[in-house]
C-alpha cells in the first residue's frame, strides 16, 4: 500500500484546519456582534457547502481559478500562482468547503456567552484581541474543539471538491479518498479496503475523542 495519499490527506487536513481556525475566529466574532444588513448573506454563503453538491463547488472553483478567466490568468501569469490542479488550490477549496463545520460551532459558542463578559471587558478598556483571547475563547473550549475536529474529519473525507479542483496527481493532489476510488476502478479491492479501514478508524477515533472530552468522561475517569 502506498502511504503517500494518506500523508497528503493528513497534511491537507492539518493545514486546512489551522488556516480555517484563523479565518473563523474573526468571522465568528463579527457575525455574533454585528447588526449589519449583510449578515444574513454572509451566513448563507458560509452555510452553502452544507447543501451544495461538492462537485458544484469544485466546478465553480475550477472555472473561476482556471487561466481562461481574468482572475485565473492574473494569478498564473502576473503573480505566478497556479491554483488549479495544485496542492495550494486544494487547500483553498477545502477551506471553503469546510467553512460551516468550523464556523457554526464557534459562532454558537460565542453567541451563547453572556453579553456582560464582552461589555465588562470593554468598560475596562481591553482591546478586542484581549477580549477574544483572554475572555471569550477560553470560555468556549468545547465549541472550539468541536469546530477543529469536525473540520479535520470533514477534510479527510473530501472527495468531490478535491477531484474537481485537484484531479489525481500522485504526491500533489492524490489524497486517500481519491486513492480509494482509483483502487476500486482497477479492481484492487484489497488496497481500497486498507485505505478505507484506516480512514474509518481515524474518523471514528477523532469523533469519539470529541464526545469523550466534551461530555466530561475523561475528567471523571481521571478523578
Amino acid at each position: 500500500m502506498d502511504f503517500e495519499p494518506l500523508l497528503l490527506t493528513f497534511k491537507l487536513a492539518c493545514i486546512t484546519t489551522i488556516l480555517l481556525f484563523c479565518i473563523a475566529i474573526p468571522l465568528c466574532y463579527w457575525l455574533v456582534h454585528t447588526r449589519s444588513k449583510i449578515k444574513p448573506f454572509i451566513e448563507t454563503l458560509v452555510s452553502m457547502p452544507l447543501v451544495l453538491p461538492p462537485t458544484v463547488l469544485g466546478f465553480y472553483f475550477l472555472v473561476f481559478l482556471s487561466p481562461n478567466t481574468a482572475f485565473g490568468n492574473w494569478l498564473e501569469n502576473i503573480l505566478g500562482i497556479k491554483l488549479v490542479f495544485s496542492f495550494v488550490g486544494l487547500v483553498i477549496a477545502s477551506i471553503m468547503y469546510s467553512l460551516p463545520f468550523m464556523v457554526h460551532p464557534i459562532q454558537s459558542g460565542l453567541a451563547a456567552l453572556p453579553k456582560s463578559y464582552t461589555e465588562t471587558a470593554r468598560l475596562m478598556g481591553k482591546s478586542t484581541w484581549m477580549i477574544l483571547t483572554k475572555v471569550l475563547l477560553p470560555n468556549i473550549k468545547p465549541a472550539i474543539l468541536t469546530g477543529l475536529v469536525l473540520t479535520f474529519a470533514h477534510t479527510i473525507g473530501e472527495f468531490g471538491v478535491v477531484l474537481m479542483i485537484g484531479g489525481n496527481i500522485p504526491g500533489k493532489t492524490k489524497v486517500a479518498s481519491i486513492a480509494i476510488y482509483d483502487e476500486v476502478e482497477t479492481l484492487n479491492y484489497t488496497a481500497a479496503n486498507q485505505y478505507s479501514l484506516i480512514l474509518l478508524s481515524i474518523s471514528f477515533l477523532i469523533l469519539l475523542s470529541v464526545y469523550l472530552i466534551n461530555g466530561g468522561y475523561l475528567k471523571r475517569t481521571i478523578r
Partner: peptide, 29 residues
C-alpha cells in the same frame, strides 16, 4: 465607553468563569 471611567456591575455579575477570583480581580488593569 472605556474613556467614561465607569465600572459596571451587571445583573449576572459578568465574572469570567475561566479565571479564579484573584485572576478576575487582577485582570482589571
Amino acid at each position: 465607553v472605556h474613556q467614561r471611567e465607569i465600572a459596571y456591575v451587571f445583573q449576572d455579575y459578568g465574572l469570567f468563569p475561566n479565571m479564579t477570583v484573584l485572576e478576575n480581580l487582577e485582570f482589571v488593569k
